[in-house]
Structure formats: structure tokens, C-alpha cells
Design a protein around this nucleic acid. Structure first.
Length: 614
DNA sequence: CTCGCAGTTGATTAA
DNA sequence: ATTAATCAACTGCGA
């Protein structure tokens, strides 16, 4: 994959006019000529007509593909192709959105497109929006509009690589010159891997040593030749509204982060204006429960869609640093965050099957559970652990949560408590996050599940104490889980420990209005660590590459060691769980003997009381 | 003033 | 980019 990628990229970045293609050579001569006589009444065939294909990179600033499209062109056609599969409502999905994407990210995309159109119109141009599958639409447009240059930003994701390879092949065959520069990332992952002797750097340190300084951003084009009035019967559409796409009666709270280049640049300047905050920034010290004013820049969704150039961000950030004698450093600094992004892009580009466990050479092979009930409880914010559930509700409603909240819920789903496949959690994030980014999301899920990059599987975030240490009053929980808004703060992270009278007074009966915890963390995390220990041992024995049968066999042994017991009558003092049968409380327990709820209850009651002993 | 006790803080460590 | 247990060191306070 790496080798193929390198050859592929060099073939169109290194040589602008592949000599193997006679038509391109001819075109190159014509184009050089046309630059000189552009103002003359030149023959129509000498005109350069460029199609600027937007995918990510939804911006005018630092957009080398757009800049190139504009150079010496008589017409530039700025195109975005809306894929109906990406947009169409899926009524069977667990939350509003299409099969692939939650409604927040669709909305963010539509806002970004609207803003891109506005910004193009300020230059006398406009966005040409079409519905369809880009693999068929783009080649059709090339011939309909007699395009002779196709420009788009290089994209390293596997889906994009395949799509772009097909389109480039077709375009080149038709004599269309293709220009596809790197501008979504600071560095070209191809170069970085090459600099590292053909090996993908798999530690942050190694990566940082290799890369050096990124190139500066390029200017926005000063002049954008407009597309002609006559589009040769090609139907373009206005940016649709959510309602027009079929999203009606949406009741969910919307993301407070609107899309668009203009908003991105405003937020960038806002964030960087506070020099002290920028220079003191240390990611691990951020407060994941801060939600009115988040503890980070929240520029990630703008970077994901390319509303904001990471190179502009980097340049402006270093300008702020240069005005200060002291500032934080990677990996924890803001610069460090941009480098983490690059690190995962490079790892994702250079690693086969980066988005899977099987067939992924850097991923520990672990017999995770394929338990849809546990997964659904986690996904829908009804694990019974308020800190986890609040974070998952924030994800669904806002399409965003703080990095450390992502750590907490990812750890909980995988190696910390539920032991469910990291790929299942990855899918949920990929659908709901407005900043969902293929490389970063997969990289972080492997990190948090101790499948790759990070291996200290004993380091488990507590679903009770981790949130509490940042927000002892539980304001974050109460905002996203209003059912708990009247629960006294000493019980807010463990409401099942509240006496029934307290639950009644708070209008929240545990097991009725809010679920009981689906696992006892004290027991579950112990079991998870045991499972991880055995899985790591198997990986070690087999040189890191156990066969699938060996993983399955270990799974069978672990299932025998840790039988799943359905809870019988729940005679805890705080009322029986009624709710739907789907919510059957599953307990993870070392042995059935430990099951009596009296004993379990005592363990779970281990919280600090404010009362003093005498 | 000192002692004992209870409770806190911080470093260390094992899981 | 962890937590909980442990222990030494320390604090506050009443006797």
C-alpha cells in the first residue's frame, strides 16, 4: 500500500505533464502559449477551462488547487458533488441522520457549502452544486464543459484514494490535466514515510523528529474567473436545507458549532487572540466537563472539512509563540495537537487495514465482545454511569465532546468496562462527531483500546471519579441528563447509591427514570484487565500476529472463565427496574457466587460522604 | 507545651 | 493523556 501510494502520488505531483500521454503533452504546449496570448482573441481551443473539484478543503484561503485552477484560466468551474447516500435520512438509524452521518455533520457541511458559495460570489464566481456519485458526475462534467484542467486537493483516505485514482485515470485518458496538491495536512504523508526509510513512523517522537517544518500557506486567489452562464444543460442546485433533505421535526439540541470558512477564520483569530491561553495550553490539563466555554479551540471540525487550513493555523500559532518568551511544547501544546493530527494521518496512510483489527499489522488482536445490547446502551447514553451517559448525549446533541471525554467513553466501551470491539465505538463516533476524521478517529480508538500506540491497559478511567474531579457539582451531567437535575450532588456520579427517599425527592427513581449501571465498574474493570492480560500474552507468544482461530479460542476460554449472568430479581432497596426488556441488566462478574445484590450494592456504595465521624 | 487522634496531602507503587 | 491503595509526613485541634 505504501509503495503503491508513493508511486501513485509521485506520478502526478512530480510530473505535471506525464510524458506517457501525448494529449497532455500537446495540451502543455498549448497552455504555455495561451498564458501569453490570453488577452488576445485566442482560438477557443486555447482557452484554459478548469474544474475545481471541492471535497474537503472548503475554503478560498491556502487552497493551492484553487489557486492553480485560477491561473491563466478563462473559466473556473467550482464544483461540489453531493452524494445522496451520504445525505438521505435513514429512519432506521439510532439518531437523526443518514446511514453514515448524523444530522449535525450534515448541517455543518451544508453551512460550509453555503459559506463557500458566498465567498466565491464575493469574487464574482459561485459554487456549482450537483447531486450524484462523483465518480460518474465528475468525468461527465469534464466532457460536457470541455474542461482541460481538473484541480482537487490530495486526499489520503482509502476511499478517496480509490475514487480519485479512478477519476484521474479517466480524466487523463481524455487529455485533461490533473493537479492535486497536498494541502489538507501540514506534510505529505508520502514524503514523511519516504524520509523514514520507507517505514511508517509509529511513535509520535519518531514522527516529530522526521518531519521538520511545514510549508507556509499560499494566498487566496486575487481573481477567480467565473464559470460561464451557459452550463450546457447541466442542472446545478442550490445548497439544500435540512428540511429539503427530509429532516423534519428535529427536536434534538443542535450543535453550537456552525460550519464555514468565515466562521473558521473568525474562531481561529478568537482563539489566538488570547496569547496567555495559547502559550499555557496543555491538552491533558483541559477540563472535559467545561461545556459553556470548552477547554479547547474546537477548531477540529473546521480542519476536518478544510474550512480552515492547518498550515494557516500553524503559521499564526507560531507567530503567537514568537511574541512570548515561554510557551508549552509538543506533545501537549496546541502545536502538538496539529502534529498529532499529522501523526495519525501518516500512520493511517502507511498502515494496511488501519480501520480494522483483523489484517492490521499494528493492531493487537484481542477477543472483544460482540454485544449489541452493551453497545446500544453505551451509544444511547443509558449505561447508568451518568458521566459516561452525559458525554454520549453531548456527542449526539452537539456532535462534539472534549478529547478527555472521548478518552473516558472509549475506554469504558472497550478495555475499561464493557470490552466491546473498538471498531463498533469507532463507527458511532464516525457517524456522530462533526469533526469525525478517518485517520484520527481510528488512531485514537486503537490508542484508547490499547490496541496500538498505547499499551498500558491497567490505566483505566473511572466512570465515577474521573468526571467528578473536574466537576464535583455535576453541572455537566445535569445539563446533558436533565433527568438527574435535582439529584443531590453527592450522588450525581453514583445515583444508584442515593436512598430511595432522596431519589423520590429528586423525581428520579433509579431503575425507572434513569437506569441502574449496566456493569459494576469495580468488578468489570478487573475482569477487563484479566482479559487484556491474556490477550496480550497471546499476542506476545505469536510474535504479534495470532491467527484468528487462536483469538477465537482465547475468547472461548475467557467466556468460560467469566460467564455472563443475567440478573434475577433485583431486590435492591431503590425499586425494581421496569423499563423495557431490552434494558436487561447484565452483570459482569467473576463468579455467579458474587451475584447477590446485597453484596454488590455495598461495593457500589463506596463513595465519600460529607458526614464526619465522631 | 505536648500528646494523641483524625484527617489531609503527596509520593510511590501495583494493577 | 489512570486509579486506588498504601504510607510517611504533616496539620489542626482538643485535652
Amino acid at each position: 500500500m505504501v509503495v503503491e501510494g508513493r508511486i501513485f502520488v509521485q506520478s502526478f505531483l512530480g510530473k505535471l505533464f506525464p510524458s506517457s500521454n501525448q494529449q497532455s503533452v500537446n495540451f502543455a504546449r498549448r497552455r504555455n502559449f495561451s498564458v501569453h496570448c490570453i488577452s488576445e482573441k485566442a482560438n477557443k481551443t486555447m482557452e484554459k477551462k478548469s474544474l475545481m473539484w471541492f471535497r474537503k478543503g472548503l475554503r478560498l484561503h491556502d487552497n493551492p488547487a484553487l489557486l492553480r485552477a485560477c491561473q491563466g484560466a478563462s473559466h473556473v468551474y467550482p464544483v461540489f458533488v453531493l452524494d445522496p447516500f451520504y445525505l438521505a435520512p435513514d429512519p432506521t438509524a439510532p439518531s437523526p441522520g443518514s446511514t453514515r452521518v448524523g444530522v449535525n455533520r450534515i448541517r455543518f457541511l451544508l453551512q460550509s457549502l453555503e459559506n463557500l458559495d458566498e465567498n466565491l460570489r464575493k469574487h464574482g464566481s459561485r459554487l456549482l452544486l450537483l447531486h450524484g456519485n462523483p465518480t460518474t458526475v465528475i468525468p461527465a462534467l469534464l466532457s460536457k464543459w470541455h474542461i482541460n484542467e481538473l484541480c482537487y486537493e490530495f486526499d489520503t483516505e482509502p476511499y478517496a484514494q480509490d475514487r480519485d485514482a479512478d477519476i484521474k485515470k479517466l480524466a487523463t485518458k481524455e487529455g485533461v490535466e490533473v493537479f492535486s496538491p497536498v494541502s489538507h495536512t501540514l506534510f505529505n504523508p508520502v514524503d514523511t514515510i519516504q524520509k523514514n526509510g520507507g517505514n511508517t513512523p509509529l511513535t509520535y517522537q519518531a514522527f516529530c523528529k522526521i518531519v521538520g517544518k511545514p510549508p507556509p500557506p499560499v494566498d487566496a486567489p486575487s481573481h477567480i474567473p467565473c464559470p460561464p452562464e451557459d452550463l450546457n444543460n447541466v442542472e446545478v442546485v442550490a445548497v439544500p436545507t435540512l428540511e429539503e433533505l427530509g429532516y423534519i421535526n428535529l427536536v434534538e439540541e443542535f450543535s453550537p458549532h456552525p460550519g464555514g470558512e468565515t466562521e473558521a477564520l473568525r474562531r481561529l483569530d478568537d482563539s489566538l487572540a488570547d496569547q496567555k491561553w495559547v502559550c499555557d495550553f496543555e491538552k491533558p490539563k483541559g477540563n472535559p466537563t467545561a461545556f459553556i466555554k470548552p477547554a479547547t479551540t474546537v477548531l477540529s471540525p473546521y480542519l476536518k472539512f478544510g474550512c480552515l487550513s492547518c498550515r494557516l493555523f500553524y503559521q499564526k500559532l507560531l507567530a503567537v509563540y514568537s511574541r512570548s518568551k515561554k510557551y508549552s511544547k509538543p506533545p501537549v501544546s496546541l502545536e502538538g495537537q496539529l502534529l498529532w493530527r499529522e501523526f495519525f494521518y501518516t500512520a493511517g496512510y502507511g498502515t494496511p487495514n488501519f480501520d480494522r483489527m483483523y489484517g492490521n499489522p499494528i493492531c493487537k488482536q484481542i477477543p472483544w465482545k460482540d454485544d449489541d445490547q452493551l453497545l446500544a446502551a453505551w451509544r444511547d447514553g443509558r449505561t447508568g454511569h451518568p458521566w459516561i451517559d452525559a458525554a454520549m448525549v453531548q456527542l449526539r446533541k452537539w456532535g462534539w465532546m472534549h478529547h478527555l471525554a472521548r478518552h473516558a467513553v472509549a475506554c469504558y466501551l472497550t478495555r475499561g468496562d464493557l470490552f466491546v470491539y473498538w471498531e463498533k465505538g469507532r463507527d458511532v463516533f464516525d457517524r456522530l462527531l462533526i469533526d469525525a476524521d478517518w485517520a484520527i478517529n481510528n488512531g485514537n480508538w486503537m490508542w484508547l483500546s490499547a490496541s496500538a500506540f498505547f499499551h498500558q491497559y491497567h490505566r483505566i478511567y473511572s466512570p465515577i471519579t474521573f468526571g467528578k474531579k473536574y466537576d464535583p457539582d455535576g453541572l455537566y451531567v445535569k445539563h446533558f441528563l436533565p433527568v438527574l437535575k435535582d439529584m443531590p450532588k453527592q450522588y450525581i456520579y453514583e445515583p444508584w447509591t442515593a436512598p430511595l427517599a432522596v431519589q423520590k425527592k429528586a423525581n428520579c427513581i433509579i431503575g425507572v427514570d434513569y437506569p441502574r449501571p449496566i456493569v459494576d465498574h469495580a468488578i468489570a474493570n478487573k475482569e477487563c484487565r484479566e482479559r487484556m492480560g491474556q490477550a496480550y500474552a497471546l499476542n506476545k507468544e505469536t510474535g504479534g500476529h495470532p491467527k484468528q482461530e487462536q483469538v477465537d479460542a482465547l475468547n472461548d476460554r475467557l467466556e468460560a472463565q467469566f460467564p455472563v449472568v443475567e440478573s434475577e430479581s433485583d431486590n435492591a432497596p431503590s425499586a425494581p427496574p421496569k423499563q423495557s426488556p431490552k434494558k436487561a441488566v447484565k452483570k459482569v462478574s467473576r463468579s455467579p457466587k458474587e451475584e447477590p445484590s446485597g453484596k454488590r450494592q455495598r461495593k457500589l456504595t463506596d463513595y465519600k460522604t460529607p458526614t464526619k465521624k465522631k
